[in-house]
Design a protein around this nucleic acid. Structure first.
Length: 261
DNA sequence: GGTCAGGGTAGCC
DNA sequence: GGCTACCCTGAC
């Protein structure tokens, strides 16, 4: 938005958010909506100041990412939407990914409301998207991912039910369970399964290694392991439950300087 | 206007 | 484990 704020749709609700110094301003929302919904979505009850201090103590090389990443927090997003978005993300550019998501919402989602001439749509449900043909996925710019997405939409309900049944609670020793199940979906590999777990399944310890994070960690950390898998393990050891948050700080620090693409 | 990389994955060796 | 093709778009 031109005033520096962001308007979007989150689970059938329109929200306008902006940051003023260190305050997050949301509108239009009622107090009960904040308590029941946005407090959780924006992870507003966490003391990020304490987390930041601990990260710096554990890893002094995190100084720059901590400085550039002020205000970053981990959102709790919808698992289905996150899965589709990250299947679309592989070997793809961000403008094209957002274009595809907008196309899917406008074509197959529900119209929520119109604000200042802009029509807002919800992200389509799995019920809505599992009906799409290969050509319909391709029409939204999915490219060769269309066949993955078509199959993933068909498998989604069963896959997600199994994830729920086996549990993803933070105390679960086998944190790989959800990821293994997610990786049965076509187009979902280690990086995408880590992202889905981190952003939508409350697994804050996940450390997705993408091209930007891999590059930046190697620049900043002299002892960085070379393989993605080893880097994941090392990050978990270093940052524990805040590995995912640390990954976000590193990612944004790496992207800084590169405006688009 | 070519050329190229891009929030990786699947399929093959 | 390492290697390569993959839709197609925006950026150089």
């Amino acid at each position: 938005m031109e005033d520096g704020s962001y308007t979007g749709v989150v689970r059938d609700k329109i929200i306008n958010a902006r940051q003023e110094s260190n305050q997050l301003i949301l509108q239009p929302v009622s107090l009960s909506e904040v308590e029941n919904h946005w407090l959780f979505y924006f992870d507003l009850q966490r003391n990020y100041g304490a987390v930041n201090r601990q990260i710096l103590e554990q890893a002094p090389w995190m100084k720059a990412p901590l400085q550039t990443g002020k205000g970053i927090r981990l959102l709790r997003q919808d698992p289905w939407e996150t899965t589709i978005t990250f299947i679309l993300s592989s070997n793809n550019h961000i403008p094209r990914i957002t274009g595809s998501v907008a196309c899917l919402s406008e074509t197959y989602g529900n119209h929520i409301a119109t604000r200042q001439g802009v029509r807002y749509h919800s992200f389509p449900t799995s019920e809505q998207l599992k009906k799409l043909s290969l050509e319909q996925w391709q029409a939204c710019g999915a490219g060769y991912r269309a066949r993955y997405l078509m199959q993933a939409a068909l498998q989604w309900e069963t896959c997600y039910r199994q994830i729920r049944q086996r549990g993803t609670d933070p105390g679960d020793i086998d944190e790989k369970t959800a990821r293994c199940l997610l990786e049965t979906l076509p187009g979902v590999g280690p990086k995408v399964s880590a992202c889905i777990s981190l952003f939508s399944l409350d697994q804050r310890h996940q450390f997705p290694v993408d091209v930007w994070v891999r590059r930046r960690v190697k620049e900043l950390w002299s002892e960085a392991p070379s393989s993605d898998r080893e880097m994941e393990v090392a990050a978990l050891k270093l940052f524990g439950d805040e590995a995912g948050y640390a990954q976000q700080l590193i990612f944004y620090n790496a992207r800084k300087g590169k405006s688009a693409s």
